[in-house]
Design a protein around this nucleic acid. Structure first.
Length: 454
DNA sequence: TTTCAGTCAATAGA
DNA sequence: TCTATTGACTGAAA
């Protein structure tokens, strides 16, 4: 069974041998066959040549303002009438949904893993490429051309690029009807949760963001869902709530005084997420969390949802659920316990931001932090360590790799005098938050109960 | 084993 | 046709 549906990760022509060392995150049954591509027509945009692989670039990249980058990318794409799909597949090596997600909810840089930073570095490289639009337009044309060719029978189906129509269900032409049939059967229908089901899960989440196996099974049976669906829902919900909090932080910063600075993402986040994984909600942090005013209520309030129509299974399940469901009935979300996830998420970003901002004020005050890629060989300034923010004590990205001849990283915003005032304000805020965190940590260490006023 | 980050891809809605 | 949402999945970390 060979289905080539996956997108070929983009080569930026940085250093092909080092490219794509990350394993493909998905090993779907329809993983790309060796040498097989579904999108040959979508050649990646060429970036200035450099001996560096994208991962080296990511590792050496200074802190990027993810919010500003995505904002800019959105603008450019919109202004030039270029779609997320084209951009994602040819520039980032991601699908449209992922691109949409990234563009609308970028995480702050310091919250991203190396892998998570990669798309942002790619975006930045793309933004710095003076021919980026042209190249993407060319690609669009090529795609259209390929589509027309295939449509008018000049090419056999499946042999051409990721053009409209061919993109979905890009099944291997070698597939027999029997295989196709079994492929269709193997395809699981997507579960669509009804509004009531989601509402019930949300309520359950408020009660117990990390439900026990027993709770999961109970929920699953009451809602007539598979336990895996419930588990997945909780995972996804926690993860998305966390990101929501981060986004709010970023946007706060954006509107707060000066341009965005992802290094100071949120002012409502007291503890680190790294800790929070260790400090399970049922543990100490949860105890402390209940002492902290819940700042992230938005997502917990039941938004009006109209969905889940169609699918018979869903509607059956749905009506059954209505009849039997009452996981935590009569609960008032407003009175519900603090959501440890929101707390945890916000906590972490705060501490992280403190680490960055307080320890490196210049980084904190570089909202326009930009990495510019110079096509001009500049062995003298690889990743400029002499930049203003290099005075920041030991940020791991300020190292000086001697073998980075083609890149210079420019931080224009650091020269902006207007930033002083906002920096000061930001630092004051950070200091205040730092104080709060410090007290929280002490309280947590002593296991003592404190009443807080923020 | 559990949780997470990151992503895919189906689907809904504009 | 495009974008946003979201259930499911993988691999990594703890």
């Amino acid at each position: 069974l060979v289905i080539s549906k996956s997108i070929k990760p983009v080569s930026l022509t940085l250093e092909s041998s080092k490219e794509n060392q990350y394993p493909h995150p998905h090993s779907h049954p329809h993983t790309e066959p060796p040498g097989g591509k579904c999108t040959p027509g979508l050649q990646p945009v060429q970036q200035p040549h450099t001996p560096l692989g994208i991962q080296e670039l990511v590792a050496m990249s200074p802190e990027l303002d993810t919010y500003a980058i995505t904002k800019r990318v959105k603008e450019v794409l919109t202004d030039n009438n270029l779609g997320q799909r084209l951009f994602g597949e040819s520039i980032l090596g991601l699908t449209q949904g992922s691109v949409s997600d990234l563009l609308s909810r970028p995480k702050p840089w310091h919250k991203l893993s190396l892998k998570g930073r990669e798309p942002f570095v790619r975006m930045q490289l793309w933004l710095n490429d003076p021919y980026n639009i042209d190249k993407l337009r060319d690609m669009k044309k090529m795609e259209k051309k390929a589509y027309l060719k295939r449509r008018y029978g000049l090419l056999s189906p499946g042999s051409d690029s990721d053009s409209p129509g061919a993109r979905s269900d890009c099944v291997s032409p070698a597939m027999t009807p029997l295989e196709l049939c079994s492929f269709n059967q193997a395809k699981k229908p997507r579960v669509v949760l009804a509004a009531e089901e989601k509402e019930a899960l949300r309520k359950a989440y408020l009660q117990e963001p990390y439900p026990s196996q027993h709770t999961i099974e109970m929920l699953a049976s009451q809602l007539h869902l598979k336990t895996n669906t419930v588990i997945n829902w909780f995972h996804n919900y926690r993860s998305r709530m966390r990101r929501e909090v981060l986004m709010e932080g970023l946007q706060d910063n954006d509107t707060d005084a000066e341009p965005t600075n992802c290094s100071t993402p949120t002012s409502h986040s007291p503890v680190s997420e790294g800790d929070d994984r260790k400090q399970h909600p049922r543990g100490r942090s949860h105890h402390v969390a209940t002492r902290v005013r819940q700042l992230n209520v938005k997502q917990e309030t039941a938004e009006p949802e109209v969905e889940g129509s169609g699918d018979e299974e869903t509607s059956n399940r749905h009506s059954k659920a209505k009849a039997s469901l009452a996981p935590h009935d009569g609960e008032d979300p407003a009175k519900s316990p603090v959501d440890p996830v929101s707390f945890k998420a916000s906590s972490e970003s705060c501490r992280s931001s403190l680490e960055v901002s307080l320890n490196s004020p210049s980084a904190a005050s570089s909202p326009g932090l930009m990495m510019s890629v110079s096509p001009i060989p500049s062995s003298s300034a690889p990743i400029s360590p002499s930049l203003p923010n290099s005075s920041a004590p030991s940020t791991n990205h300020s190292m000086e790799p001697p073998s980075v001849p083609n890149y210079s990283l420019d931080l224009p915003a650091l020269h902006n005098p207007k930033l002083n005032k906002s920096t000061q304000r930001r630092n004051e805020k950070m200091a205040n938050l730092n104080n709060i965190i410090h007290r929280l940590e002490r309280a947590a260490n002593r296991e003592e109960t404190l009443e807080w006023e923020f």
